[in-house]
Write a protein that binds this DNA or RNA. Structure first.
Length: 462
RNA sequence: UCCUCAGUAGCUCAGUUGGUUAGAGCGGCGGACUGUUAAUCCGUAGGUCGUAGGUUCAAGUCCUACCUGAGGAGCCA
């Protein structure tokens, strides 16, 4: 007999038929006559209640069916006379697949703090909250590919190991096969990377953007979706050292096309979650964040506010609000400024553009006069910057001048520059932090709780 | 990296101006209960008070350093 999942059982079309269920025990209640065993197999936020009449099973077996143990249950799926579930299984056969000693099993019937569950990340998948979070994580991963595929974008695999240290997106993790206890040095006592695996210094990527542009400048529209690594010593609920990023890159797109895509993309993903993860979102709305569904619907239904950096600075200065850091044209906006714009001034997502050139990356397209660049940041309530992007500088001379001003080594990026020499076109792109999106969609307030095995300073246990 | 707070039972926490034998709820275990829903009721075991020093007649409590965690800031996604 083939197994039926909890998800299928709840759908109900197997009513009054014999079924085989396999899963993990969440709780067991009952008395001498009857035991109620809640079983979950991860296919749904819901459990299936298994009803086991004591006379049919040995005392020993029922005793060993403890929270966390795995079981196979054969029985009839029937309508439940009790409240709390529509259907239940009247068990005829139960076998204990794997026991679970309740003296040492760390998960209890009661709720646990997320801090504690992070310490048992290998088991936290078995909780309602993390089951919901990681089902949603899957659904949104799938939706991302669906969205871009439908729009004719190509999924491009940019390298994870990179030799260019010029991307400027943060500190990097070194990749080496050198013996750290016996490092080769040259006559000047400098490390001799010619002896390393790649014959040069290499790191884990901090962004696939530069390579993504190479793809877009031939395939028209590409996107990347892969892991990204930042060796920053960041200790916040919004940063991890290893995270997943989506980076679309489009030829023939200007900054306005870029904004349209970003807004449409985000709305599509939120809508996808609302449609495909309703049960899990209901649970999270009930248990984690009472305003979650309201906020998600709000995003889908309202247009994002679009302002230039200069306009935003004017709004902040005219607000009369006392900020810890004063607002001044030319300075980067602080977290408190961004929060004020999104949560107080406009009360909806905000896309800011045309930032001062000094505070943005070398590759961003310069506006007339060169004072500002065509950058674009999408700011969301609660989590701040969710997307950072720009129209890219396609003019070879302007790009090279900017690199010299900012001390970006031209020789290392010769391949990047050549795309501006050979048939250059206007193009744009952005980066979306996948975990930041997940925080927003799930209502989880710490990024370490939306990635299965978070990598943070001093933590790489699992 | 900086600032603030925290670390006491498996979990969540209480523990007074330093004072004798360290407390609760939940969970576990044993028992009761004819359908339970975080079941309920009765009973019971369980602690090197983050680590290392120091002050004191006496330290969970005060001081120092370190470790770990959380929140805020910076960096950014």
């Amino acid at each position: 007999m083939t197994r039926t999942t909890v998800k299928e059982l709840i759908a109900g079309d197997r009513l009054n038929k014999e079924v085989l269920l396999k899963g993990w025990v969440r709780t067991k209640r009952g008395n001498r006559q009857v035991a109620f065993i809640a079983v979950n197999d991860g296919t749904s936020i819901h459990n299936i209640q298994v009803v086991a009449e004591a006379e049919k099973f040995s005392e020993e077996l029922v005793k060993n069916i403890t929270t966390g143990s795995s079981v196979a249950v054969r029985g009839i799926l029937v309508e439940s006379p009790g409240k709390g579930q529509n259907v239940e299984i009247h068990a005829d056969q139960i076998s204990l697949l794997g026991g679970c000693d309740p003296e040492v099993y760390p998960l209890q019937k009661k709720g646990h703090s997320f801090e504690f569950l992070r310490e048992i990340a290998h088991l936290r998948f078995r909780t309602n909250t993390f089951g919901a979070v990681f089902r949603i994580r899957h659904a949104l991963s799938f939706a991302i590919h669906q969205y871009f595929n439908d729009k004719g974008f190509y999924y491009l695999h940019t390298p994870i190991i990179t030799a260019s240290d010029a991307e400027g997106a943060g500190a990097m993790f070194r990749v080496t096969t050198l013996d750290l206890n016996n490092l080769p040095r040259d006559e000047a006592q400098q490390l001799d990377f010619s002896r390393d695996f790649f014959g040069r210094s290499t790191n884990l990527t901090v962004s696939g953007q530069l390579e993504g542009e190479l793809g877009a400048l031939a395939l028209s529209s590409i996107y990347t979706f892969g892991p990204t690594f930042r060796a920053e010593n960041s200790n916040t609920p919004r940063h991890v050292a290893e995270f997943w990023m989506i980076e679309p890159e489009m030829a023939f797109y200007d900054i306005y096309d870029n904004m349209d895509l970003a807004e449409d993309f985000l709305k599509y993903l939120v809508k996808y979650a609302l449609e495909h993860c309703a049960d899990d979102l209901d649970f999270l709305n009930r248990m984690i964040d009472k305003e979650l569904l309201e906020r998600l619907n709000f995003i889908v239904e309202n247009t994002f506010v679009r302002k230039s950096y200069t306009e935003a600075v004017d709004v902040l200065m005219a607000s009369g609000h006392k900020f810890e850091f004063p607002v001044q044209w030319g300075n980067d906006l602080q977290a408190e400024h961004e929060r004020y714009l999104v949560e107080v001034a406009f009360r909806r997502p905000v896309i800011l553009t045309d930032y001062p050139a000094e505070i943005k990356s070398f590759y961003m397209k310069q506006n007339e006069g060169g004072k500002t660049v065509r950058a674009m940041d999408v700011l969301f309530p609660k989590i701040g910057e969710i997307i950072g992007g720009s129209q890219r500088e396609e003019d070879y001379d302007k790009l090279v001048n900017r690199m010299r001003e900012m001390n970006i080594p031209e020789d290392e990026l010769w391949w990047y520059l050549e795309t501006r020499k050979f048939g250059t076109v206007e193009h744009s792109g952005f980066g979306l932090g996948f975990e930041r999106l997940l925080m927003f969609v799930t209502g989880m307030s710490n990024i370490r709780d939306v990635i299965p095995f978070p990598r943070t300073p001093k933590n790489a246990e699992f």
